[in-house]
């Protein structure tokens, strides 16, 4: 029964990745903005949500959590904890990760990371465990900033309207005398 279930799980989760030693990756890394979405602001979010099928196992591993000072009853009721094997996230501008531009520490209960300030280009990201083995698929993020033409149109129309408003305020509002 269990093997049938696991088989179905693997099939339903799509192609088997070769990145996690030929097995299904334990962590499902995703671009929150949506797969294949182009990022126009250099800022994006990566998430690896809790896999609902795994809920029972992860809850068990939770009970030996790292907070001895908390009464476990309160903890059970109040805390959002759920662990995963990843310890860091690597980002590279080439698919083979030969040149890693960012290495970001990830906490064992962290489920998302917000990244920022990227210039135009394709970036590849994946999660790794303490032994530097990949635990997730590689996610591709394409950053393409708005065209400067569009930006100047919006910037100049904003500036114009702003100057009109300031002009009006200075002439009419700040110099206004009460009529009796």
């Amino acid at each position: 029964m269990v093997s049938v279930f696991l088989f179905l799980l693997v099939v339903s989760s799509g192609a088997i990745s070769s990145e996690c030693n030929g097995q299904k990756c334990p962590v499902d890394l995703q671009l929150k903005e949506g797969k294949d979405e182009v990022i126009p602001s250099g800022h994006f979010n990566l998430i690896w949500p809790i896999d609902e099928d795994d809920e029972t196992t992860s809850e068990q591993s939770d009970s030996d959590g790292d907070r001895e000072d908390e009464p476990s009853a309160i903890k059970g009721a109040l805390v959002d904890y759920e662990k995963h094997p990843a310890t860091h996230l690597k980002i590279s501008s080439d698919q083979s990760f030969s040149q890693v531009s960012h290495t970001i520490k990830i906490h064992s209960t962290q489920r998302a990371v917000s990244l920022t300030g990227f210039s135009d280009g394709d970036y590849y990201a994946r999660l790794l465990d303490a032994n530097n083995n990949p635990v997730s698929d590689t996610v591709t993020v394409t950053v393409e900033h708005h065209s400067m033409f569009k930006v100047w149109i919006i910037f100049i129309s904003g500036a114009t309207l702003f100057l009109i408003l300031i002009g009006y305020m200075v002439v009419k509002v700040f110099r206004h005398k009460e009529e009796v």
Binding site: G117, F118, H146
Partner: peptide, 20 residues
């Protein structure tokens, strides 16, 4: 070095954001 757009004075999305 790592997040150059943050210091960029011609950061497109940020310029749109300013007057907004």
């Amino acid at each position: 070095e790592h997040h150059p757009e943050l210091l960029n004075l011609l950061f497109p999305a940020a310029m749109m954001f300013l007057f907004n």
